[in-house]
Design a protein around this nucleic acid. Sequence first.
DNA 1: CCCAAACATGTCAATAGATACATGTTTGGG
DNA 2: CCCAAACATGTATCTATTGACATGTTTGGG
Lengths: 176, 176
Amino acid sequence: MRILKHVILGLLNRSSMSGYDITNEFHTTVSEFWTASHSQIYPELKKLTEEGLVTYEIQITGEVLEKKVYSITPKGKQQFINWLKIDVPMEPTPKSVFRLKIFFSDQLSPERRKYLLNSQILQHRQRLEHLKANHQKFKNPPKMNSPELGDYLVLEGAIMREEMTLKWLEKCLDYT
Amino acid sequence: MRILKHVILGLLNRSSMSGYDITNEFHTTVSEFWTASHSQIYPELKKLTEEGLVTYEIQITGEVLEKKVYSITPKGKQQFINWLKIDVPMEPTPKSVFRLKIFFSDQLSPERRKYLLNSQILQHRQRLEHLKANHQKFKNPPKMNSPELGDYLVLEGAIMREEMTLKWLEKCLDYT
DNA sequence: CCCAAACATGTCAATAGATACATGTTTGGG
DNA sequence: CCCAAACATGTATCTATTGACATGTTTGGG
């Protein structure tokens, strides 16, 4: 479905940036709903350029370091908006290795099960704290139709997901 | 990480079954935490057989229809249990195309945004109802260390996830 | 008895994704 | 001034996943 294509187009539709900048977005905001590393991003940018959906101009940083700053083309913008408008069927449940382990956890000793659950709980608590810290940067919800509203809603969703996950993990502990 | 390998080993560790039966598990219980179709399952069973982790015997249904009933070997069971015991680091946030669309939803008209959100809400409500129907099949929580407890906990987790998703979608609607 | 749905097993090609390999520049703090 | 961290861009290989292609049998209801 070329999801990566549309994430990149969406980011470039917000503002022009380099592959490196895009990679950074994947390390921060985008990480709440998609993952990709630079080894996927650079070839995809090349492909999008060939397809005429993005263009780039080279900027020199310092003496010689070349930076390709990509921009979306009208054709790219059109494809992005069309894709965004499509009503997609509900996605299949996300994959989860930990839920798989719980599914088969009768094969573990109660001690081991407790240990694994506590390990997850600690990590998810940290993630939740980190998300809540980001959330405080927004003093009040961004106004309608601003790009920040998307960031905000996704962040709220991430917080809700982590809170739910922690509740579930603790419930699993109760049964152990 | 060979997740599919371990799902199959886990299922065969519960009871012997055919590739078709395994595929059915992926359509029901397993679908709450992993997905795979028969085009992945049959080659994987072949590979596991070559690795000596499973064996099969052929059963005839009716006159000529051959069915391969797979069983886990001691070596397979050992590998499965070892894998199950490992403490895995928290997984990256699951990918979600719909959250991606919300992230960029300032590019949509409020009407379109509402439409997409309502479409998701309807579908998730149906999934939730379906999960709750399954939940009622358990009169009370299965006892500790039974395989049913794994099914039960995963089901509860799925219900919590759907309830959270619905709350989030409704919150998104409020901002639209 | 017919026919559709369920049973049953596979392959192939294309895309997507993860991890490692590969190389170099610039900036800012100690 | 040195050095580490950040900036910057790519390729190669392997594995995982999806969707289509391919084929045939059995069962149960109308």
